[in-house]
Design a protein around this nucleic acid. Sequence first.
DNA 1: CTGAAAGCGCTTACAG
DNA 2: CTGAAAGCGCTTACAG
Lengths: 348, 348
Amino acid sequence: MSVTIRDVARVSGFSIKTVSNVINGHPQLRPETRQRVQDAIDQLGYRPNLSARNLRSGRSGVIGLIIPDLTTAYFAELADAVMRKAAAKGLAVLIEPIGSGRDNELAALSGKHRHMVDGIIYNALTLNAGDAELLRSVDTPLVVLGDTSFNGRVDRITMANTAGARAATEHLLAVGRRRILALGAHEGEIIAAAELRLAGYRQAVEAAGLTFDPDLVHYADSWHRRGGAAVMAKLLDDGLKFDAVFAFNDTLALGAMRVLQEAGVRIPEDVAIVGFDDLDETRYSLPALSTVNPRRDEIAEAAVDTLLRRIEGGSELEAHEIETGFSLEIRQSSGPVLTGAAGANTAA
Amino acid sequence: MSVTIRDVARVSGFSIKTVSNVINGHPQLRPETRQRVQDAIDQLGYRPNLSARNLRSGRSGVIGLIIPDLTTAYFAELADAVMRKAAAKGLAVLIEPIGSGRDNELAALSGKHRHMVDGIIYNALTLNAGDAELLRSVDTPLVVLGDTSFNGRVDRITMANTAGARAATEHLLAVGRRRILALGAHEGEIIAAAELRLAGYRQAVEAAGLTFDPDLVHYADSWHRRGGAAVMAKLLDDGLKFDAVFAFNDTLALGAMRVLQEAGVRIPEDVAIVGFDDLDETRYSLPALSTVNPRRDEIAEAAVDTLLRRIEGGSELEAHEIETGFSLEIRQSSGPVLTGAAGANTAA
DNA sequence: CTGAAAGCGCTTACAG
DNA sequence: CTGAAAGCGCTTACAG
């Protein structure tokens, strides 16, 4: 039914081996041979059968991306970035949205998808250092996205949580703010990013010669719009005074901003706000939200490259840990107080 | 290296054929045989090699989902729904975000992903009736998501655009609104949904004995927050009077709502708003947005089922066209005017 | 540079 | 119910 390499061989008059060489870009072929084989391929509309190739090579050309869900903007944008980088390397991506919770996250590691992919990029939220053994026992090449350290035993890509948070806070200090709320801390929390971002905030405050004030640190159950709105509503009720907010992610910032505006607080005149993640929508909020850009492109590229290295190098290879860079996107929510169009200034 | 069916046969003492029968749930096997084979499978940790199975069967167990992008909330939620329904049928989903524009959309049909999937769910925005021939020429089973009619020649799933829009408008009329803006029309537009939703709006208005007023119909370049904000800003500038807005999608509605609130217009007291899509975030906006729920779950299920039917039935099968249902989610933005918690009432 | 042949792991007629 | 064997389409030593 379908055209095979054998048909191409027959039509072109060359052997199967030669046809295979042409398909796989083998260098030592005389141009004329290559051309005649290519003509036969075009004429027949031949396409290599990937199942056969994979069976032979032991590779599928597909990598898995395990994330909690696809409907959270952060993960959707991450998945998009990973797909682009993977496509550039000739790989397809199979996304597995696993839901939240440690049980789901661990179960995904033994899911059946594992057997159709060459490797996995794994973004779990509940991993801890004690899981290193478990992760190493997975027999599929694996790269972890996240902030938990496994002491160099697992390939891992992290973002600049502390440095980014520090830069965001320093920016707020630089534009003259002194009582900066830290929004999104987690008490005794499994989410390592919260701790790291709080550390960056604290570093900036103390480096500026100010005293770190625990009264300015506030918790949020969930890092979503609703969480940001709820916390901010409570703080306004309590009559807390502040002139800036550093929210640990963008959706918290957007939720908080919304409540502030409802209450008649002007942004950035009365309160300046900076978020973290650089979600697409931060460009379109009113005012546009300043934020830390964790360079998802860089994260995606590092993840794909590290995974490929692991796939090709095997389990004996030493584990890599890569921390990606960041940039601070200064927009209206913390920018100079004037009426003008939104502008995204980038500072490293 | 890896465990094969041959190893299971050897360890269990049965033939390869019998092992295969057990793996594939063949009914006529005595329980004891089944058990002993299963024990060997468990003991060895055997997992079928999917490439081999696919090579043999001509199936991959993977379907493709072609969408413009993954960062638009609507498509992310659609992809999520499709993955869930596919998983329930034992299928994995390979998402291909193709970018916008007709060139990209057509190019995707000949993309190489096509050869690793058993079938494709295709959500293109720029298709027209003249593309039926092209779609039929694709040799991979295909289901189209969208509103363009191909006269029964291509499998297709559509949503209740007109009925949903009519219900939304009727609801606004029922709560006493008379000058209802239709936001998101497209002039001479390729996006069929805009036309269908406008038709539903018009039907409702005329059925109520009112005159359809073209001055209340407004265009939006893009169905995004920014588009909704821009149009609404202009209308306020122009001093147009209205007491309700039916926006053709949720992001338009959210953008418009934002601008209205900035201008001191109370929602729903002064202006009631209803959107379309039932995005997750409509539950969390302030006020929560009333919207038409196009039942993405139903769309996803219909798409997966129709695709499976096509994969199994071949190209001779008559084309199916399925229109899914909808529900109207009445929330605060158009609800009774009182101060209370958000509540999502569902009315069919 | 090229050809004939083995084998990746599975499923499925075919024969018993 | 079970076994021996063919073959899905490809790549790759091996021999020339």
